[in-house]
Protein backbone atom coordinates (compact mmCIF):
# COMPACT_ATOMS: atom_id res chain seq x y z
CA UNK A 1 0.00 0.00 0.00
CA UNK A 2 2.83 2.41 0.79
CA UNK A 3 4.22 2.08 -2.73
CA UNK A 4 0.79 2.84 -4.17
CA UNK A 5 0.56 5.93 -1.97
CA UNK A 6 4.11 6.96 -2.87
CA UNK A 7 3.38 6.83 -6.59
CA UNK A 8 0.17 8.79 -6.16
CA UNK A 9 1.57 11.58 -3.97
CA UNK A 10 4.76 12.04 -5.97
CA UNK A 11 3.01 12.32 -9.33
CA UNK A 12 2.52 15.81 -10.78
CA UNK A 13 -1.14 16.81 -11.02
CA UNK A 14 -2.20 20.33 -10.04
CA UNK A 15 -5.78 21.53 -10.43
CA UNK A 16 -6.37 22.34 -14.07
CA UNK A 17 -3.59 20.12 -15.36
CA UNK A 18 -4.35 16.60 -14.17
CA UNK A 19 -3.18 14.78 -17.33
CA UNK A 20 -0.28 12.97 -15.71
CA UNK A 21 -1.97 11.85 -12.49
CA UNK A 22 -5.00 10.79 -14.53
CA UNK A 23 -2.76 8.52 -16.60
CA UNK A 24 -1.25 6.97 -13.47
CA UNK A 25 -4.69 6.32 -11.98
CA UNK A 26 -6.00 4.97 -15.26
CA UNK A 27 -3.19 2.40 -15.30
CA UNK A 28 -3.90 1.47 -11.68
CA UNK A 29 -7.60 0.72 -12.16
CA UNK A 30 -7.53 -0.63 -15.72
CA UNK A 31 -8.61 -4.27 -15.75
CA UNK A 32 -10.42 -3.93 -12.42
CA UNK A 33 -13.46 -2.13 -13.81
CA UNK A 34 -16.06 -2.65 -16.52
CA UNK A 35 -15.97 0.82 -18.05
CA UNK A 36 -13.50 3.67 -17.95
CA UNK A 37 -14.02 7.13 -19.39
CA UNK A 38 -12.92 10.74 -19.12
CA UNK A 39 -15.52 13.54 -19.23
CA UNK A 40 -15.30 17.06 -20.67
CA UNK A 41 -13.63 18.50 -17.57
CA UNK A 42 -11.15 15.65 -17.29
CA UNK A 43 -12.71 13.57 -14.51
CA UNK A 44 -11.70 9.90 -14.69
CA UNK A 45 -14.85 7.81 -14.22
CA UNK A 46 -14.56 4.06 -13.63
CA UNK A 47 -17.64 1.87 -13.43
CA UNK A 48 -17.64 -1.48 -11.72
CA UNK A 49 -20.98 -3.10 -12.31
CA UNK A 50 -22.95 -4.70 -9.47
CA UNK A 51 -25.90 -6.99 -9.36
CA UNK A 52 -28.71 -4.55 -9.77
CA UNK A 53 -28.33 -2.61 -6.53
CA UNK A 54 -28.01 1.14 -6.21
CA UNK A 55 -25.84 3.53 -8.21
CA UNK A 56 -23.12 4.69 -5.84
CA UNK A 57 -20.69 7.48 -6.71
CA UNK A 58 -17.40 7.33 -4.80
CA UNK A 59 -15.31 10.43 -5.34
CA UNK A 60 -11.75 11.37 -4.48
CA UNK A 61 -10.10 14.34 -6.11
CA UNK A 62 -6.87 13.78 -8.00
CA UNK A 63 -5.85 17.42 -8.28
CA UNK A 64 -3.44 19.06 -5.85
CA UNK A 65 -2.78 22.68 -4.93
CA UNK A 66 0.03 24.59 -6.62
CA UNK A 67 1.15 27.94 -7.94
CA UNK A 68 0.60 29.49 -11.37
CA UNK A 69 3.22 31.61 -13.09
CA UNK A 70 1.61 34.92 -14.06
CA UNK A 71 4.65 36.80 -15.31
CA UNK A 72 8.26 36.23 -16.32
CA UNK A 73 10.30 39.37 -15.74
CA UNK A 74 13.17 40.63 -17.87
CA UNK A 75 15.77 38.87 -15.77
CA UNK A 76 13.96 35.53 -15.87
CA UNK A 77 12.37 35.58 -12.39
CA UNK A 78 8.79 34.33 -12.13
CA UNK A 79 5.88 36.04 -10.42
CA UNK A 80 3.05 33.74 -9.43
CA UNK A 81 -0.41 33.32 -7.91
CA UNK A 82 -1.81 30.67 -5.59
CA UNK A 83 -3.72 27.86 -7.27
CA UNK A 84 -6.14 26.75 -4.57
CA UNK A 85 -5.41 27.17 -0.87
CA UNK A 86 -1.68 27.83 -0.89
CA UNK A 87 -0.37 30.20 1.77
CA UNK A 88 2.81 32.29 1.77
CA UNK A 89 4.10 30.90 5.07
CA UNK A 90 4.41 27.44 3.51
CA UNK A 91 6.38 28.78 0.56
CA UNK A 92 9.36 30.63 1.99
CA UNK A 93 12.55 28.68 1.34
CA UNK A 94 10.58 26.00 -0.42
CA UNK A 95 10.87 24.35 -3.80
CA UNK A 96 8.31 23.88 -6.53
CA UNK A 97 8.46 21.60 -9.52
CA UNK A 98 6.97 22.20 -12.96
CA UNK A 99 5.54 19.67 -15.41
CA UNK A 100 8.76 19.65 -17.46
CA UNK A 101 10.79 18.77 -14.35
CA UNK A 102 12.22 22.25 -13.81
CA UNK A 103 12.61 23.04 -10.11
CA UNK A 104 12.31 26.56 -8.74
CA UNK A 105 13.19 28.13 -5.39
CA UNK A 106 10.80 30.60 -3.77
CA UNK A 107 12.46 33.87 -2.93
CA UNK A 108 11.28 37.00 -1.18
CA UNK A 109 12.11 40.55 -2.34
CA UNK A 110 13.28 41.54 1.11
CA UNK A 111 12.20 40.26 4.47
CA UNK A 112 10.65 43.28 6.20
CA UNK A 113 10.63 41.49 9.53
CA UNK A 114 11.21 37.88 10.54
CA UNK A 115 7.89 37.99 12.43
CA UNK A 116 5.81 38.95 9.42
CA UNK A 117 4.91 36.61 6.58
CA UNK A 118 5.34 38.39 3.25
CA UNK A 119 2.38 38.57 0.84
CA UNK A 120 2.37 36.90 -2.57
CA UNK A 121 3.28 40.10 -4.41
CA UNK A 122 6.60 40.14 -2.54
CA UNK A 123 7.50 36.59 -3.55
CA UNK A 124 9.02 35.25 -6.75
CA UNK A 125 10.40 31.98 -8.12
CA UNK A 126 13.98 31.55 -9.22
CA UNK A 127 14.59 28.70 -11.67
CA UNK A 128 18.13 29.81 -12.32
CA UNK A 129 17.33 31.50 -15.62
CA UNK A 130 19.44 34.45 -16.73
CA UNK A 131 16.84 36.23 -18.82
CA UNK A 132 13.20 36.09 -19.93
CA UNK A 133 14.35 34.51 -23.17
CA UNK A 134 16.18 31.54 -21.65
CA UNK A 135 13.59 30.89 -18.90
CA UNK A 136 12.31 27.30 -19.27
CA UNK A 137 8.95 28.21 -17.69
CA UNK A 138 6.25 30.40 -19.21
CA UNK A 139 3.12 32.26 -18.12
CA UNK A 140 0.38 29.81 -17.21
CA UNK A 141 2.73 26.99 -16.20
CA UNK A 142 1.87 25.40 -12.86
CA UNK A 143 4.29 24.36 -10.14
CA UNK A 144 3.59 21.93 -7.28
CA UNK A 145 5.44 21.27 -4.03
CA UNK A 146 8.53 19.18 -4.63
CA UNK A 147 8.70 16.54 -1.87
CA UNK A 148 9.19 12.76 -1.73
CA UNK A 149 7.08 10.55 0.55
CA UNK A 150 8.58 9.44 3.83
CA UNK A 151 7.25 6.50 5.85
CA UNK A 152 8.09 6.62 9.54
CA UNK A 153 6.45 3.77 11.40
CA UNK A 154 2.71 4.05 10.85
CA UNK A 155 2.97 7.73 10.04
CA UNK A 156 3.43 8.91 6.47
CA UNK A 157 4.65 12.35 5.41
CA UNK A 158 4.18 13.71 1.89
CA UNK A 159 2.76 16.49 -0.22
CA UNK A 160 -0.70 16.14 -1.74
CA UNK A 161 -2.21 13.60 0.67
CA UNK A 162 -5.07 15.99 0.00
CA UNK A 163 -6.44 14.09 -1.79
CA UNK A 164 -4.19 11.44 -3.26
CA UNK A 165 -4.76 9.49 -0.04
CA UNK A 166 -8.45 9.42 -0.98
CA UNK A 167 -7.46 8.21 -4.46
CA UNK A 168 -5.33 5.49 -2.83
CA UNK A 169 -8.30 4.36 -0.71
CA UNK A 170 -10.48 4.01 -3.81
CA UNK A 171 -7.79 2.16 -5.81
CA UNK A 172 -7.32 -0.21 -2.88
CA UNK A 173 -11.08 -0.65 -2.60
CA UNK A 174 -11.23 -1.78 -6.23
CA UNK A 175 -8.46 -4.29 -5.57
CA UNK A 176 -10.14 -5.79 -2.54
CA UNK A 177 -13.83 -5.67 -3.26
CA UNK A 178 -15.27 -8.92 -4.52
CA UNK A 179 -18.83 -9.21 -5.72
CA UNK A 180 -20.83 -6.15 -4.87
CA UNK A 181 -24.55 -5.60 -4.98
CA UNK A 182 -24.19 -2.03 -6.19
CA UNK A 183 -22.96 -0.28 -9.32
CA UNK A 184 -19.84 1.55 -8.20
CA UNK A 185 -18.88 4.72 -10.05
CA UNK A 186 -15.38 5.46 -8.83
CA UNK A 187 -14.61 9.03 -9.81
CA UNK A 188 -11.21 10.66 -9.61
CA UNK A 189 -12.32 14.27 -9.86
CA UNK A 190 -10.50 17.34 -11.15
CA UNK A 191 -10.33 20.92 -9.88
CA UNK A 192 -11.68 20.25 -6.40
CA UNK A 193 -9.22 22.79 -5.06
CA UNK A 194 -10.68 25.45 -7.36
CA UNK A 195 -14.26 24.98 -6.17
CA UNK A 196 -15.41 21.36 -6.49
CA UNK A 197 -15.74 21.80 -10.24
CA UNK A 198 -15.08 18.25 -11.36
CA UNK A 199 -17.61 16.88 -8.88
CA UNK A 200 -20.32 19.18 -10.26
CA UNK A 201 -20.21 17.81 -13.80
CA UNK A 202 -19.37 14.18 -13.00
CA UNK A 203 -22.20 13.87 -10.47
CA UNK A 204 -24.61 15.39 -12.98
CA UNK A 205 -23.52 12.91 -15.62
CA UNK A 206 -23.74 9.87 -13.31
CA UNK A 207 -26.90 10.90 -11.43
CA UNK A 208 -26.13 8.50 -8.58
CA UNK A 209 -28.54 7.26 -5.90
CA UNK A 210 -25.93 7.78 -3.19
CA UNK A 211 -22.70 9.80 -3.10
CA UNK A 212 -19.63 9.32 -0.92
CA UNK A 213 -16.56 11.54 -1.01
CA UNK A 214 -13.26 10.33 0.41
CA UNK A 215 -11.04 13.24 1.41
CA UNK A 216 -8.82 14.45 4.23
CA UNK A 217 -9.86 16.38 7.33
CA UNK A 218 -8.03 18.47 9.87
CA UNK A 219 -7.16 17.20 13.37
CA UNK A 220 -7.18 18.84 16.79
CA UNK A 221 -4.41 16.71 18.30
CA UNK A 222 -1.36 18.93 17.85
CA UNK A 223 0.00 21.40 20.45
CA UNK A 224 -2.51 24.23 21.06
CA UNK A 225 -4.39 23.36 17.88
CA UNK A 226 -7.81 24.92 17.34
CA UNK A 227 -10.36 22.66 19.04
CA UNK A 228 -11.48 19.67 17.03
CA UNK A 229 -12.46 16.19 18.16
CA UNK A 230 -10.49 14.30 15.49
CA UNK A 231 -7.05 12.75 16.07
CA UNK A 232 -4.53 10.93 13.93
CA UNK A 233 -4.63 7.14 14.28
CA UNK A 234 -8.09 6.94 15.87
CA UNK A 235 -9.75 5.73 12.70
CA UNK A 236 -11.33 7.32 9.64
CA UNK A 237 -13.77 10.14 10.39
CA UNK A 238 -17.42 10.07 9.38
CA UNK A 239 -18.33 13.65 8.53
CA UNK A 240 -21.32 15.31 10.15
CA UNK A 241 -20.73 18.87 8.97
CA UNK A 242 -18.22 21.17 7.35
CA UNK A 243 -18.34 24.77 6.17
CA UNK A 244 -20.54 24.02 3.18
CA UNK A 245 -22.52 20.85 3.84
CA UNK A 246 -24.26 18.70 6.37
CA UNK A 247 -24.04 15.01 5.54
CA UNK A 248 -27.22 13.12 4.83
CA UNK A 249 -28.26 11.71 8.23
CA UNK A 250 -29.20 8.34 6.72
CA UNK A 251 -25.87 7.88 4.96
CA UNK A 252 -23.99 8.99 8.06
CA UNK A 253 -25.88 6.50 10.21
CA UNK A 254 -25.27 3.68 7.72
CA UNK A 255 -21.53 4.41 7.79
CA UNK A 256 -21.52 4.42 11.59
CA UNK A 257 -23.43 1.14 11.68
CA UNK A 258 -20.99 -0.44 9.22
CA UNK A 259 -18.07 0.62 11.41
CA UNK A 260 -19.65 -0.54 14.67
CA UNK A 261 -20.84 -3.91 13.35
CA UNK A 262 -17.41 -4.68 11.96
CA UNK A 263 -15.33 -3.36 14.83
CA UNK A 264 -13.70 -0.68 12.70
CA UNK A 265 -12.52 2.33 14.72
CA UNK A 266 -14.06 5.61 13.56
CA UNK A 267 -14.47 9.21 14.68
CA UNK A 268 -17.18 11.81 14.10
CA UNK A 269 -16.11 14.95 12.29
CA UNK A 270 -17.40 18.50 12.65
CA UNK A 271 -15.12 20.68 10.55
CA UNK A 272 -15.20 24.47 10.93
CA UNK A 273 -13.61 25.45 7.62
CA UNK A 274 -13.26 23.74 4.29
CA UNK A 275 -15.39 21.30 2.38
CA UNK A 276 -15.23 18.40 -0.08
CA UNK A 277 -16.66 17.19 -3.37
CA UNK A 278 -19.61 15.88 -1.35
CA UNK A 279 -20.98 19.42 -1.02
CA UNK A 280 -21.34 19.57 -4.80
CA UNK A 281 -22.57 15.99 -5.24
CA UNK A 282 -25.32 16.56 -2.68
CA UNK A 283 -26.78 19.45 -4.70
CA UNK A 284 -26.87 17.59 -8.00
CA UNK A 285 -30.17 17.47 -9.85
CA UNK A 286 -32.97 16.76 -7.33
CA UNK A 287 -30.52 16.22 -4.49
CA UNK A 288 -28.46 13.15 -3.65
CA UNK A 289 -28.03 11.53 -0.22
CA UNK A 290 -24.34 12.10 0.35
CA UNK A 291 -21.79 11.39 3.04
CA UNK A 292 -18.04 11.69 3.55
CA UNK A 293 -15.30 9.44 4.87
CA UNK A 294 -12.35 11.57 5.95
CA UNK A 295 -8.76 10.58 6.54
CA UNK A 296 -7.40 12.57 9.49
CA UNK A 297 -4.46 14.61 8.24
CA UNK A 298 -2.14 17.10 9.92
CA UNK A 299 -0.64 20.15 8.18
CA UNK A 300 -3.07 20.09 5.26
CA UNK A 301 -2.05 22.29 2.30
CA UNK A 302 1.60 22.34 3.30
CA UNK A 303 4.45 20.44 1.61
CA UNK A 304 4.51 18.03 4.58
CA UNK A 305 1.09 16.62 5.27
CA UNK A 306 0.91 13.70 7.71
CA UNK A 307 -1.47 10.76 7.88
CA UNK A 308 -1.56 7.48 9.79
CA UNK A 309 -1.47 4.36 7.65
CA UNK A 310 -3.91 2.56 9.98
CA UNK A 311 -6.54 5.25 9.35
CA UNK A 312 -6.08 4.72 5.62
CA UNK A 313 -6.45 0.96 5.89
CA UNK A 314 -9.46 1.30 8.14
CA UNK A 315 -11.05 3.69 5.65
CA UNK A 316 -10.80 0.92 3.03
CA UNK A 317 -12.33 -1.56 5.48
CA UNK A 318 -15.10 0.86 6.35
CA UNK A 319 -16.00 1.37 2.69
CA UNK A 320 -15.96 -2.39 2.07
CA UNK A 321 -18.27 -2.94 5.03
CA UNK A 322 -20.60 -0.12 4.02
CA UNK A 323 -20.89 -1.28 0.42
CA UNK A 324 -21.54 -4.89 1.45
CA UNK A 325 -24.89 -3.83 2.85
CA UNK A 326 -28.01 -3.76 0.70
CA UNK A 327 -29.26 -0.59 2.36
CA UNK A 328 -26.95 2.38 1.94
CA UNK A 329 -29.06 4.86 3.91
CA UNK A 330 -30.95 4.42 7.13
Amino acid sequence: MIELIRTLTETYGPAGNETRIRQVLRDMVKGKVDELKVDALGNLIALRKGKGGRKVMLAAHMDEIGIVVNYVDEKGFLRFSALGGVFPHTLLGNRVEFENGVVGVIGVEKLESPDKVPTFDKLYIDVGAESREDCPVKVGDIGVFSRPLIAQGQRLIAKAFDDRIGCAVLVKLLEEIGDCEHDLYIVFTVQEELGLRGAVTSAYGIAPDVGIAVDVTRTGDTPEAPKMAVALGKGPAVKVKDARMISHPGVRQALIRAAEQNGIPYQLEVLEGGTTDAAAIQLTREGIPTGVISIPCRYIHTPSEMVDLRDVENAVRLLLAYLSSKELTE
Binding site: R244, M245, Q282, R285, E286, G287
Partner: peptide, 16 residues
Protein backbone atom coordinates in the same frame (compact mmCIF):
# COMPACT_ATOMS: atom_id res chain seq x y z
CA UNK B 1 -34.35 23.00 4.06
CA UNK B 2 -30.80 24.25 4.60
CA UNK B 3 -31.35 27.81 3.40
CA UNK B 4 -29.04 28.98 6.17
CA UNK B 5 -26.30 26.66 4.83
CA UNK B 6 -26.40 28.35 1.43
CA UNK B 7 -29.85 27.96 -0.19
CA UNK B 8 -29.22 24.23 -0.54
CA UNK B 9 -32.80 23.01 -0.24
CA UNK B 10 -34.04 25.50 -2.82
CA UNK B 11 -31.42 24.42 -5.36
CA UNK B 12 -32.57 20.80 -5.44
CA UNK B 13 -36.30 21.34 -4.91
CA UNK B 14 -36.48 23.86 -7.76
CA UNK B 15 -34.65 21.41 -9.98
CA UNK B 16 -37.04 18.63 -9.02
Amino acid sequence: SQEEMGLRGAVVSAYG
